[in-house]
């Protein structure tokens, strides 16, 4: 269990974090969402120990997170960095060794990852000679080389091509399935919706919404959507506030069973369900609230 507890951080007069807390249970994939400058990167950098918080703490499995545990984490910073003049395979293995692997194990792991990422034939090339997309893949390999027991990834999907997105997504799911807590930030909300068990929304250094994806969606349920195959207009006959969305009726503030009865009497009901917001809509709602 990775717990980020009540982080506060100021940069000069700017309050970057104002009591940020979030948790990731073993096997849980947490999506971290927020506008630019909301505090995602700062939170993740503090969690990885590259930035000190003014107050608050990071707790891992019940004790404060120290260097020895962080070394077994996988981290991808928002601004990518690799040694341009180092060979790809050598570089991935080097990071494996820095994370405490033996040289042989690090090399093996690097070779496996390069294979998964279709980069095996580039292992001997300098990183600077790779395309930007391939450099991103190498970056991904660097964060996964040591088989990390937790993942903190800042915008791991930005700049990735669809194949790498799939590899990344699979890697996240695999790590989570093996029991690792996973936290990642992204602006690609469809990816968050697809991959995450829960979502944390941050705005201006505060957590403004957090919870399981389904739970958040259920909480933000908007209106009843009804499709009926009928020639007549039911706007007046349906109870509550009724609006049209194309051929559909959107019904609010009404007894759904009564709506169903009236609709069924008018014709064949082809769709009858509460609209669930997308994570994107929830996000937009949350940040503008």
């Amino acid at each position: 269990m990775l717990e980020i507890k009540d982080l506060h951080k100021r940069f000069g007069d700017t309050v970057a974090l104002d009591g940020v807390s979030l948790t990731a249970a073993p096997g849980e994939v947490v999506g971290f969402v927020g506008a630019n400058g909301a505090g995602k990167t700062t939170t993740m950098r503090i969690a990885m120990g590259v930035l000190a918080a003014d107050s608050g703490q990071i707790v891992y499995n019940g004790s404060p997170l120290g260097v020895e545990h962080r070394r077994r984490f996988g981290y991808m910073p928002s601004e990518r960095g690799l040694y341009p003049k180092m060979k790809t395979g050598e570089q991935i293995a080097y990071f494996g060794e820095l994370h405490g692997m033996s040289r042989a194990a690090a090399r093996r792991s690097a070779a496996d990852l390069l294979d998964q990422l279709n980069l095996s034939d580039r292992a001997g090339d300098f990183v600077q000679d790779l395309s930007l997309g391939n450099q991103q893949r190498v970056q991904l390999a660097v964060s996964l080389v040591h088989d990390p027991e937790a993942l903190i990834l800042d915008e791991p999907f930005s700049g990735l091509d669809p194949i790498a997105v799939d590899v990344m997504g699979t890697a996240l799911k695999d790590r989570a399935a093996a029991g690792a807590p996973v936290i990642f930030s992204s602006h690609q909300l469809d990816l968050i919706e697809r991959l995450c068990d829960s979502v944390v929304i941050i705005g201006n250094g505060r957590i403004i919404a957090a919870g399981g994806v389904d739970e958040l969606k259920a909480k933000e349920v908007k209106q009843l959507r009804v499709s009926v195959q009928t020639g007549e207009d039911l706007t007046a006959s349906l109870p509550g506030a009724v609006t049209r969305d194309g051929d559909d009726y959107l019904v609010e503030d009404a007894d759904d069973q009564e709506v169903l009865r009236i609709a069924a009497a008018a014709g064949r009901v082809t769709h009858f369900a509460y609209d669930q917001p997308t994570i994107a809509e929830i996000f937009r709602e949350a940040v503008t609230r």
Binding site: Y83, F95, L98, H99, G100, V142, S143
Partner: peptide
């Protein structure tokens, strides 16, 4: 290391 931001990864281990 600083300009390529790789230092951020290095300093986690």
């Amino acid at each position: 290391e600083k300009s390529s931001r790789i230092v951020e990864i290095l300093l986690t281990s």
